[in-house]
């Protein structure tokens, strides 16, 4: 008994610094956010004595407001639309990972090049893409003037039907390398014997890919899909830098809307309520992911 206590004590001591940070920077804000969602709270309101004005309890009013707020549904719709990026980015990253998972000249260079956008700041990426996207920018120049594929320039960031997909393209471009690395590590963990055995049994490349590789890297796929689902739903930087939610709210996503409500309109209580509702939605999406990937395959989780 004493030994077990000593063992666990050491373990908890090692965990302590991380736990403290987690409590202070994650758990506390989370709980505070949930309580704030029942209050009217404007962070800059000050009492005559110069103290922050206390929040005013308003019960469920913030939540009632949300369900009558057209911008909430607009933002939710855009965030859910953003999920379309997940299959594209995952299949793209997986294919690239398979192609780069071999010994050939230039492979290391390609891997590095693919990873470069990941470590580039979103502000720089956003500004660069904004320049590519403008009506007389490079992209339109190629499509209209050089390749003559289109008769007039595309309003990448100004057409409300297209703007969200333009921003998604940037997320895709930036994210591919990240998932590629995760898939590469998954692929490299596959023991060569499996592949050799398959070859001896007469499997072609496609069979090896679909019947050996995919099932064996299923845990990696699940991890990547969950990360990218949450990433897509939480998209903020691209919107902040590139469109500010416009034109006509066509790129207003949930996290950006929460930011606007909190820091532009100073309605912290309402923003917190939006956050709580959105966290609930994120929970559902993650649950579906777990459920889906648990069926069949190897049950690691």
């Amino acid at each position: 008994m004493k030994k077990i206590f000593k063992n666990t004590l050491a373990a908890y001591l090692f965990l302590l610094p991380a736990l403290v940070l987690l409590v202070v920077f994650t758990l506390y804000p989370m709980i505070r956010g949930i309580t704030l969602s029942f209050y009217h709270f404007n962070m800059i309101q000050t009492t005559d004595a110069g103290l922050p004005a206390p929040p005013v309890f308003i019960g469920l009013d913030n939540y009632k407001g949300i369900f009558g707020d057209p911008l909430f549904f607009m933002a939710l719709r855009n965030s859910l639309l953003y999920l379309l990026i997940v299959p594209v980015i995952q299949i793209g990253a997986l294919v690239i990972a398979v192609l780069l998972n071999r010994k050939a000249p230039g492979v290391y260079f390609m891997r590095t090049a693919m990873y470069l956008p990941v470590i580039t700041s979103i502000v720089i990426v956003g500004i660069a893409w904004k320049w590519l996207f403008v009506s007389d920018g490079l992209l339109n120049f190629f499509l209209v003037d050089k390749l003559h594929l289109l008769s007039e320039p595309v309003g990448w960031l100004t057409d409300r039907r297209i703007a969200l997909f333009s921003v998604m393209l940037v997320t895709l471009w930036q994210g591919l390398g990240y998932y590629m690395v995760l898939y590469l590590s998954g692929l490299q963990a596959i023991s060569p014997e499996h592949l050799d055995a398959a070859k001896i049994d007469g499997a072609n490349h496609f069979d090896i890919f679909t019947k050996i590789m995919i099932p064996l890297i299923r845990p990696t796929i699940m991890l990547c899909v969950i990360i990218s689902c949450l990433g897509a739903l939480k998209v903020f930087g691209e919107i902040y830098v590139m469109t500010g939610g416009g034109p006509e709210n066509s790129t207003l996503t949930m996290v950006y809307y929460i930011f606007v409500k909190g820091f532009n309109d100073f309605q912290m209580g309402y923003a917190s309520a939006l956050g709580v509702v959105f966290a609930f939605i994120l929970g559902i999406v993650s649950y579906i992911n777990f459920k889906f990937f648990r069926e069949g395959g190897l049950q690691y989780y």
Binding site: G155, T158, R160, G246, P247, E248, N249, D265
Partner: peptide, 20 residues
């Protein structure tokens, strides 16, 4: 609430500007 008001006005401007 000037921030909120300006945002509403900007959205109106966008709707007209892009011809919708």
């Amino acid at each position: 609430d000037s921030n909120n008001l300006v945002r509403i006005l900007n959205q109106a401007v966008e709707s007209a500007f892009y011809g919708r």
